[in-house]
């Protein structure tokens, strides 16, 4: 029974992703701006050359015919070829995705590492100055534009203190063979510990910039759900049994308070996988977000529609995973 429900949810994700792809396709084509004009800029070029370029890119065909080409390509598993970069879109996305996934995982880890202790202590000592400080800190984290915070971090840690690198994924002088595209994995596979350390250092500032914002959200959720659970009967019972306070908190309360935290984490994960354009630009991080935004400004329709579709898939997928985990942890809720 539950399996069929799950399958149904998985299948229902497909029309959403497809719908988003078609929406993106139409949306993009109604935008002012001609990709060929943008690409050629002020190059010396004749009208005939312009026309032949347009017809090669199918830009001279009616909208529906273009949509047909896009959809029939999708069925064959072909995402098309980038207008500006003349490279398969699947390759472009495949090249940028590992960087984004790596940053996403690091961000979520940073977020959890900060938020869990802060949220728990905040709940246990609810109302204390510690709690108030943590709460205000969380609000500051939420209210900060990421590029501003990121630039300040670069200024402090990279320029003034010189303990961390400013940007990029690995020092220019390090030679790392690309196998998986994940810098941390590749450096380990190569057995190059020095490069691994370097890659880790490069990850810290962007992950911290994004992670602080996420930690702020997560800490508040952890605090709220802990507070609720701490007031429940079984916790009171456990306390009455004479279990040590922190034992109660960690063993009984935390486990039950984890569910909402997991929800927020899962959704954040799905959202971050779409790439963060702003942090990626500030830290010269070659991820998906930067690819998509530069493509939309260049009107590289083919890249944007594929990326938006991918984003929709991860978004729907993350929702699905969260719901599935929810059911797993809390059998009272059905999908």
């Amino acid at each position: 029974m539950r399996l069929t429900k799950l399958l149904e949810r998985v299948l229902s994700a497909i029309p959403v992703a497809l719908g988003v792809a078609v929406l993106a396709f139409m949306f993009l084509r109604f935008l002012p701006g001609d990709p060929v004009e943008i690409m050629l800029g002020d190059t010396q070029v004749s009208q005939q050359q312009l026309d032949s370029l347009r017809s090669q890119l199918h830009l001279d065909k009616p909208l529906l015919a273009q949509l047909g080409i896009f959809l029939s390509g999708l069925i064959r598993g072909d995402l098309g070829v980038s207008i500006v970069k003349n490279a398969p879109v699947a390759k472009l996305i495949g090249d940028t995705l590992p960087a984004t996934i790596e940053l996403t995982i690091a961000t979520v880890l940073v977020g959890i590492l900060i938020a869990m202790p802060v949220g728990i202590i905040s709940a246990v000592r609810a109302g204390s100055w510690l709690d108030r400080t943590a709460l205000s800190g969380a609000l500051v984290g939420i209210s900060m534009p990421a590029f501003w915070f990121g630039l300040l971090m670069i200024l402090l840690f990279a320029v003034e203190l010189r303990v961390l690198p400013t940007s990029g994924r690995i020092a220019a002088t390090m030679v790392v063979d690309k196998t998986t595209g994940f810098m941390l994995v590749d450096t380990l596979l190569a057995g190059n510990l020095k490069a691994f350390g370097g890659a880790l250092k490069h990850l810290i500032l962007p992950a911290l910039t994004l992670g602080v914002v996420f930690a702020a959200v997560l800490a508040r959720v952890v605090r709220t759900s802990m507070l609720e659970v701490l007031g429940k009967d079984y916790v009171t019972t456990a306390r009455a049994k004479g279990l040590r306070e922190w034992g109660v908190i960690l063993k009984h309360a935390l486990r039950n308070a984890l569910i909402p935290a997991l929800t927020v984490t899962g959704l954040q994960f799905g959202e971050l996988l779409g790439g963060n354009m702003i942090v990626e630009t500030v830290f010269a991080w070659p991820g998906l977000g930067r690819l998509v935004v530069s493509s939309i400004f260049a009107r590289d329709y083919v890249v944007v529609q594929a990326a938006v579709m991918l984003y929709a898939l991860t978004y729907v997928g993350a929702n699905l995973v969260v719901d599935a985990l929810y059911t797993l942890l809390n059998p009272r809720i059905s999908l």
């Binding site: 670069i154 990279a158 320029v159 940007s167 020092a171 002088t173 010269a284």
Partner: peptide, 21 residues
């Protein structure tokens, strides 16, 4: 020669001042 893509001007300058480029 290593060509490092750094679209944000402030980041480029920080990297130069930090001796990375």
């Amino acid at each position: 020669v290593v060509w490092q893509m750094m679209p944000e001007a402030s980041t480029r300058i920080a990297a130069l001042l930090a001796g990375e480029v």
